[in-house]
Each structure stands twice: as C-alpha cells, then as structure tokens.
Nucleic acid binder design. Structure first.
Lengths: 210, 210
DNA sequence: GCATTATCGATAGCATAGTATCGATAGTCT
DNA sequence: AGACTATCGATACTATGCTATCGATAATGC
C-alpha cells in the first residue's frame, strides 16, 4: 500500500512517454520486486489486467488515484517555518497527489506576514480561527521537539482530525484524531544497521528488515 | 525496531529529569502501545529489568544505543542543497544518534564554496574524490527526482555502501549497496486514507494500518 | 489452426510482527 | 510476617504480509 504512490510515479512517467500498456513484470523489474507482489498490490485497487497484455496504463493510474484518494484535493496547514517547514512548503510532490498546504504558521513575529515558497505565513495565535474558517482538517508539525505537544494540542482545539508530525518526539492526541509520526532517525538508524549487518556478512543473529 | 529510537528519545528525557528507573508500562502509556510490545522491543537490546521495579534508565539507554549502533559516530555526505537538503544539514537529531554529515554537494556553481548550516558545500564533480579521501560510506540524496538516479550512480562509483534517498522516485543500485527510500508521499497518503476511513466510521472494507 | 509463451487471478504455504496467557519475583501494605 | 500487586520473562497463539504454485487466457510464431 505504501508502494502504490511509488508505482503511480513510475506509471505516470510511462504514460507521458506514450506507453499505454504495462505489465506487472515491467513494474516489478523497475523496483526490484517480485511480479506477484506487484500484481497483488495492483489488485487491491480494483484494476484488472488481461493475460499476456497487462494493464492499460491510464486506466491503472486512475484506479490507483481513486484508491489512494488522490482524486479530490485535500488541504492542510503547516506549523513551524524553520528549514524543514520551508522545504515542505515548496515540496513539489504534494500537488501531484492532490494535497495542498494552504497556509503556514509560526510564532516568530518576524516571519508572520511574509510568504515562504509562495505560501502565506501567519502568527500561531490565528491557527484555530483560520483552520475553522477554511475548514482545514489536517495539520503538519515541523517545529522543534519541545513545542510539538503544545502545537498538537492547539491543532486538536482547532478541530483538525489528522496530524503529521515531523518533530523528533512523540505527541499525544485524543481518540478520534489520526496521528502520523514521521521518524527520520528511525530510517537512518535502520540504514546504519543494515550496513553494519552487511559488513559482518551473513553472521547469524540480527536480521534487519523494512 | 523502528520504535527503539523513539523510546530512546523519551528515556533520555526521563534520565535528564533524574528518573533513574522506568517500567515498560510507563513507556507503553507514553506511546499508546501495549506494555508487552514494549518489553519485547527492549528485550531485543539485551536489557534486563527486574519485576516490580522495571529497568534502570541509564542502563537501558546504553543498551539501546549499543544495539542501534549509536555508540560510534557514523559519517555521511549529502547531495542536493535545495530546501530539503538544507533542512537536513541543520537537523539537530542526527548528532544525538551518532551521525554527522561531513560535507554537502551541489551542481549549482553559485552554491559550491559556500557553507549551509555550517557545512561546506562542494561542486558535485568532487564527490568521488572527497568520499574516498574521507572514507565516507553513506550518502543522502535530496535532489530533484530527475537527477536522483544519476547521483545514485555517482555515489556507487564513489564507493558509498549506503544511500538514503529523499527524491520522490526510485533509484536502482547494484547488489551490495543498501538503499533506504524515504517516501513522504506514502506517509501523507496513508494519513489521508486513515482519515477518510475514520469518517466512514467502521464501514466494512479497507482496514488501513501503519 | 495449433503449439508456445507471457501474463493474469486465485489459492495455499511460510515468515515475521503483534497479542495474550502464565508463572516468578520483588516491592508495598496491614 | 504474610497477603497483595506491579512488573518481568517465557511461551503460545493470531494476524498480516510476502512468496510460491497452479490453472486460465490471449497474443505470437510456425
């Protein structure tokens, strides 16, 4: 399921090149996966292929988009306009999957009122007011760890139902609010472990995955 | 295993507050996990606790660090000094788990020779030379999707054994090189799906996890 | 037209991660 | 001191995701 966005990106490239039919084998080779795995992933979206032919590229893309909910645009706000926040504000990938960051917030009065990557920056106090007015339901936290919980609380108060947290700490949210924790350190650590494991070449013991 | 870095962060906080003993129940409550799950995670590191008491905080931290390989510092280079790259260069979390980005590369001649977040920026041509000289084995790609594969190839040529890719595309690496793909769109999509699922409250059908 | 081959979907088996149950131990309370 | 309770580790069970096998189908080549 986490693989579907990646397939989508690849298939979009194919479609642009005018390739209108694609087999699971082709996709699998691209990513080093098992064709069966790919086929099973695609089956999840409801797309149907034909033996010996494969899938019709655009049809498949439509199925993936529908399944991932990318057909209707989804809106979000971002809190914390440091380096990471600014990067996300300019991240080109969001638009291609139907997301848009409408407005950013920061508690630094120097930043409020400016624009970053073309998005307006507002003072943190207005979070609740603006979210309710715009009927935004998703918030992104790219603030330092120490203020993450405070911001999450504010977001809950503002009526947000989904929170995507980049701060390297965990935050508590009440029942009914979805929290997606982004954990860069975990990814990096896993990479480091895999590396170390590989060097000690097939030593029995840890088997790291994911 | 991906949870251990998070536990570590929380335990560090406790240790700083002078709390020298901690039970799996305490940790579990913090993150909304099952205490058994936490205990099993901790057991993986070799830490032993005592009934009715729990674990000695600092001892536990040491076990986690040893298990995750955070005791020795690990070095990396970064390619692509756009917004995301700059953000990572200044990310405070790396140092706390023993990672350090030594140098950044960019193919924009205006950026080469400057410093971003205190790290030197060099022209992309010098990647191989510098990596070999400094004996760096890990590379981070924060460049646009279209140049990701080219950079990955250069990294492999430069002798890097681990690649952490933030570009929203997949890259191919030869056997023996570890690739860790960071996929922000997948995370965001999952958040969006969970939200939609929650709204249609317990409708049979998709059950999204992770 | 018929054999061959690539590809599909479905079912079954395996591996890993998560959950539950149980006895043992070390504090706390009366 | 003895009952009580929180917590540990070990074992067993369940669920989920991945891999393999199989028959079916449609294009290609002879």
């Amino acid at each position: 399921m986490r693989r579907l966005p990646v397939y989508h990106h690849f298939l979009t490239g194919l479609a642009e090149k005018g390739i209108d039919r694609v087999s699971s084998t082709t996709v699998a080779r691209q990513f080093g996966y098992d064709p069966i795995k790919v086929r099973k992933d695609l089956a999840l979206t409801g797309a149907v292929g034909r033996p010996r032919i494969g899938f019709v590229t655009r049809e498949l893309l439509a199925h993936i988009e529908a399944f991932l909910g990318w057909r209707q645009t989804q809106e979000a706000v971002l809190v914390g306009c440091g380096a990471l926040g600014s990067a996300l504000l300019g991240y080109e990938g969001f638009s291609q999957c139907g997301w848009e960051i409408l407005v950013a917030f920061d508690n630094d009065p120097d930043r409020a009122g400016t624009r970053i990557q073309g998005k307006p920056v507002m003072p943190l106090e207005r979070l609740s007011e603006v979210c309710r007015q715009m009927n935004v339901k998703v918030g992104i936290i790219t603030a330092p760890a120490k203020s993450a919980q405070k911001i999450a609380d504010m977001m809950v108060d503002a009526g947000l139902r989904g929170i995507w947290n980049f701060a390297p700490t965990s935050v508590q949210v009440p029942e009914g609010v979805i929290l997606q924790q982004e954990n860069l350190l975990a990814s990096l650590t896993i990479l480091g472990l895999k590396l170390k494991n590989m060097k000690s070449e097939r030593k029995p013991g840890l088997l790291i995955d994911e």
